[in-house]
């Protein structure tokens, strides 16, 4: 059973399709990175999962239960930050969390726990209007975690955070998934952010899920191609053709698509044929290539 399963979800605003027949499957206990450019439909999808927007059509199931029927049950099992977290500025951080805790029938001792988890214990009695963006973001996570949800949805969580804050948040999300076995859905347009955290990635473009894959299946650590710069292109092409290699000739270099274990053989053959090698680099598969490829196909 999936933690979240979406089928044919669509949503239009003024006849403009924000989400178009989107399908998505989030495995239980995994970190799922929802990747897409700004305006791709990530936030609209999250809004619909959280019941903040009404889908035009389609189904969203949380642990197999359709949110059209079991919305309140689903909300009791999901914690989320949708865009920037909002708080009552004239109340303290603790009071804000106590409001959420009370509404969710959670004991107030949990407030201190989550404040400690996000490192805001010292600022607990400070009014939220005096908080920095990073502190508000952390308070948002505390608010989302207060009821110990099975699923945590974070929409662009690093927005407004400094590099140190981003690093801390990354470690924190990893620990949530590994230690507490929480399913995390993370939306972002920053490839490196998602690549470092996610087990699964869904690429969304123009409101449609163009590709979903498991990072370990793609093998981002494997070689994608060899970049080759030589003095004599035509001789090099002849050698590569003889070796039955798949390659691409570009203006000033050649791209040879092969496994890493053939690199030595290529360099030996080139030298044996008196070809001077200026540069030979192994280029790994990257999420960027995958993303651009997926988005390019969608266009």
């Amino acid at each position: 059973m999936y933690a979240i399963e979406i089928e044919n979800l669509s949503k239009s605003y003024n006849k403009v399709k924000a989400v178009d027949r989107l399908n998505m499957q989030v495995h239980e206990g995994a970190v799922y990175g929802l990747l897409g450019k700004n305006g791709a439909g990530k936030t609209t999808t999250i809004r619909m999962i959280m019941g903040l927007s009404r889908p035009d059509c389609g189904d969203i199931c949380v642990f197999g239960r359709n949110i059209k029927i079991d919305r309140l049950w689903a909300l009791a099992n999901i914690g989320a930050i949708v865009e920037t977290p909002g708080f009552y500025g004239n109340l303290t951080a603790k009071k804000n969390l106590e409001i959420t805790a009370d509404l969710r029938s959670i004991d107030f001792y949990r407030v201190d726990e989550v404040l400690d988890i996000v490192g805001l214990t010292d600022a607990a009695t400070k009014q939220v209007k005096n908080f920095s963006t990073g502190m508000k973001q952390r308070l948002g996570i505390a608010n989302a975690l207060i009821h110990s949800p099975k699923i945590l949805i974070l929409d662009e969580p690093t927005n407004g955070l400094d590099p140190e804050g981003i690093n801390q948040l990354r470690d924190f999300i990893k620990s949530l998934a590994q230690e507490l076995k929480i399913t995390v859905v993370l939306s972002s347009h920053i490839l490196s952010e998602v690549e470092q955290l996610a087990d699964y990635i869904g690429i969304i473009h123009n409101g449609t899920m163009v590709e979903q894959f498991r990072i370990s299946d793609v093998g981002f650590n494997r070689q994608n191609y060899v970049l080759l710069e030589v003095d004599n292109h035509s001789d090099a092409i002849e050698v590569l053709a003889k070796m039955q290699l798949d390659f691409l000739q570009l203006d000033d270099h050649l791209r040879i698509f092969c496994d890493r274990d053939r690199n030595g053989q290529i360099s030996r053959e080139l030298i044996n044929n008196d070809i001077t090698v200026y540069n030979m680099s192994s280029i790994k598969k990257s999420l960027e290539d995958k993303f651009l490829h997926a988005v390019g196909h969608a266009i």
């Binding site: 959280m50 019941g51 903040l52 309140l72 049950w73 909300l75 009791a76 999901i78 989320a80 949708v82 920037t84 977290p85 909002g86 708080f87 009552y88 500025g89 959420t100 509404l103 969710r104 608010n143």
Partner: peptide, 12 residues
Amino acid sequence: EKTFKNLLTTPY
């Protein structure tokens, strides 16, 4: 205060 979304994501 952008708190409607907090309120609407509680189980009420």
